[in-house]
Write a protein that binds this DNA or RNA. Structure first.
Lengths: 227, 227
DNA sequence: TAGCTTCATCACAAATTCATCACAGTAGAT
DNA sequence: ATCTACTGTGATGAATTTGTGATGAAGCTA
């Protein structure tokens, strides 16, 4: 269990330092990356036992980076997220993530999770590949694919995340604000109506099944398969 | 979720003001404290739903204050920190902080975090996930659906809220004024008779069960299932 | 860099809901 | 029985909310 390399991607130096000290103390070799781009390059160069990824990063945010890593590598990933309602995001669909830690967290907790993930990834693979089927839709979160009547939909990242989120929580009504928080993140500063535009796009791509996404007047949207 | 008291402790007047405006707009009651001492006194006087605490304060700094509060109270605390500072302390976690926000932050993010913390501290007992059955009605607040004899009613937002409110408080008589306050909100300035119109609509949609909503002559309305 | 995709925002149109009013109907009091 | 105060109801224009196409910015790829 010693000498394993761990990549710590976080834009805050102080944060990286604290983590480095603890991890080295546990016998790991720590490589740092201060932004997403750098992280991606280092992953391509070196084989890591694990990647520790902060969600909040400038340039490339954690989710995007995670997706990019997963396109090529199966290195275990632990996300560091701000505490809040992003749980669904993690559980629901970004299943490429092996575990996550919410800030503020204790370093003891972090170490424990790292060990657990490493153990699992060696003992291998009860890969949580859970595929979800709702109506004519089939969702493979791990591959970032959604099939409509067995044909793969061509979706942009945002479209994927929005549709996936709605599908993972069918029948539940979400306000535009909630959707922004869940899908875009707390730090999105934009217009509520942005949601509408994406809903429009999704409906267009859903074609005859556009009624899966239904408007709840005065409230928001929900995914609904029945009726 | 309305009328909850929040203490904002920050030495910068401007900052407090901005936060106050935003929070009040969301229906919270805001009390300000311009330094640690003052904050501590106010906490001892009043019971707050949440404390928003800036780390950087003269006299008593945020960390010390946080510890002092925790010695006596379990009020949820959200810390406002400058980015990149003092991670060790947050890590330590021994301070019992419920969440923290790093400056600069958006007000939307702040609100979202506040709501998340409040929700958690309520143990989610406010989760109106409870499905309620009264007579031939079945109410699923989370889905924003009301079923009448197992058939979903098609309701406008106001209709939904009014019927839901009445059902959640059966047998209790409400005056038009009370209903306006509860369902429309205190800031509604309109005509009392507006309630009547909506009651009419509901009765129409209730069809043969219209007597669920009954008129209490000279007083108001109530929901009644029996008799 | 140029070309392409994705994204957020805006403005306008369309759809839906809402509050109000006037008048009809009803319960209760005298 | 008659009167008065209160409630029921249909119609209507205003207000709110949502749908949608266009547009320019930002990001990515080659």
């Amino acid at each position: 269990m010693h000498g394993l390399k761990i990549l710590v991607a976080d834009d805050e130096e102080k944060m990286r330092q604290v983590i480095r000290i603890y991890l080295e103390n546990e016998g790991y070799i720590v490589i740092e990356a201060s932004n997403g781009q750098e992280a991606l390059e280092k992953i391509k160069e070196t084989k890591f036992a694990l990647v520790l990824l902060d969600v909040m990063m400038p340039e490339i945010d954690g989710w995007t980076l995670c997706r990019k890593i997963r396109q090529e590598f199966c290195t275990p990933i632990i996300m560091i997220t701000a505490r809040g309602e992003e749980y669904d995001k993690l559980f629901g669909f970004e299943l490429g993530v092996d575990d996550y830690i919410t800030k503020p967290f204790s370093l003891r907790e972090m170490i424990a999770r790292i060990k657990a993930v490493l153990k699992r990834s060696n003992g291998d693979k009860n890969m949580n590949n859970n595929i979800l089927k709702v109506g004519a839709l089939e969702i493979k979160p791990r591959y970032r694919q959604i099939f409509l009547e067995n044909k793969e939909m061509v979706l942009t990242p945002k479209e994927f995340e929005l549709l996936n989120f709605l599908c993972q929580n069918p029948e539940i009504v979400y306000s535009r604000e909630q959707l922004l928080n869940q899908v875009w993140g707390y730090d999105f500063l934009g217009d509520l109506r942005t949601v509408d535009t994406h809903v429009k796009q999704l409906r267009e791509k859903l074609g005859s099944h556009k009624k899966y996404i239904c408007t709840v007047w005065g409230t928001g949207y929900k995914f609904r398969v029945g009726d």
